[in-house]
Design a protein around this nucleic acid. Sequence first.
DNA 1: CTCAGAAACTATAACCATTATAGATTCGGA
DNA 2: TCCGAATCTATAATGGTTATAGTTTCTGAG
Lengths: 192, 192
Amino acid sequence: MGRRERKKAQTRRALSDAALRLFCEHGYDGVTVAQIADEADVSIATLFAHVPDGKEALIFDDGTERRVWLATAVRDRPPGQSVLEALHQCMAARGPFTNDLPPELRRKRDLIVSTPALREYSRKLWIASEGALAEAIAAESDRAPSDMTVRALARYVLEIPELAGTEPDPLAALNAIFDLLESGWRESPKEA
Amino acid sequence: MGRRERKKAQTRRALSDAALRLFCEHGYDGVTVAQIADEADVSIATLFAHVPDGKEALIFDDGTERRVWLATAVRDRPPGQSVLEALHQCMAARGPFTNDLPPELRRKRDLIVSTPALREYSRKLWIASEGALAEAIAAESDRAPSDMTVRALARYVLEIPELAGTEPDPLAALNAIFDLLESGWRESPKEA
DNA sequence: CTCAGAAACTATAACCATTATAGATTCGGA
DNA sequence: TCCGAATCTATAATGGTTATAGTTTCTGAG
């Protein structure tokens, strides 16, 4: 990697770090992009050159990670394990569902979960992997990636973090949702 | 209804109409709120007084309609019909899933479907009914409205318009998704 | 090595949505 | 009739985002 790319990555990092620090200290709405640019010692134009999606994207990567992570979790799952089980398992290790994280990441997660704008952007990143996940699921289940059932399943799995992330017991919520996806909605009709 | 409320409703209507007309003519991004305010002959401040959620909300109602509509569809469904069947049926009559609409509404629907910002806001309106729908479902199925399974089902049903609205055959997509929710994900494992 | 061009960065100025302020007008009810 | 509240207005400020045009820094070809 040449010096150019190294410096670019450095700048991006400085922006992430500055943004996260300031957000944690003053709250998302209490910080302006100008302050973040100052703190990272770049111009505002440079900030937006690095983060085309805007302020919310500052503390996130571009979503590539999630995509490959999901695809490999499905493809390389242990033999005998179903696709949904594999997704269940790897989701459980993720962000909102475990406390087995370095305190720095935990602070970041708490910031995201407690800030609507950041939660929403996080969801957008998850949804952006829908195509990749649909392909992975399709490959394992003899269906077309464009099959609506496949796309819907992918979408519903990717909505789980936003859906369960704010529950009192996120992990229990996660389990309940995967159970629903696995078995569908079984009605227990009301007494007449 | 006094003159005051009547005038207020009139102004709100003028804003909706102006916004829809201009959006259709120049595209969502090709119109500024200033132009809309001008066209409706009110000040910008008045525009925002009527539409606190901002530009995207101009052509939508406040979501109350959907809420009551969903709740009654579930509660007053024909005897013998399941909750999901009732929701399936009433969704099918809605926006993106039928062409049985006056041309004016069809143009509005096409505008929304083809404009990301408006699609997103439409989804927000649907999701805002999650609590109401969850209560309705809970009441019919002997579960608590806070039961994660109930909440997830409500959420997943309300995501359908965004999920299926852009498909080539939205109605077929709708049917497939309800089938998934009804029966869950049945894997047809790949040959070894 | 060198130099031409690409990439990253900068300052500056614009644009637009949104909110705040303060004051004017209109309406409803007592 | 008259007070208070709701609506509307003009105006200005804030803050995110983009456009422009020019400067510096790196890379790779010759």
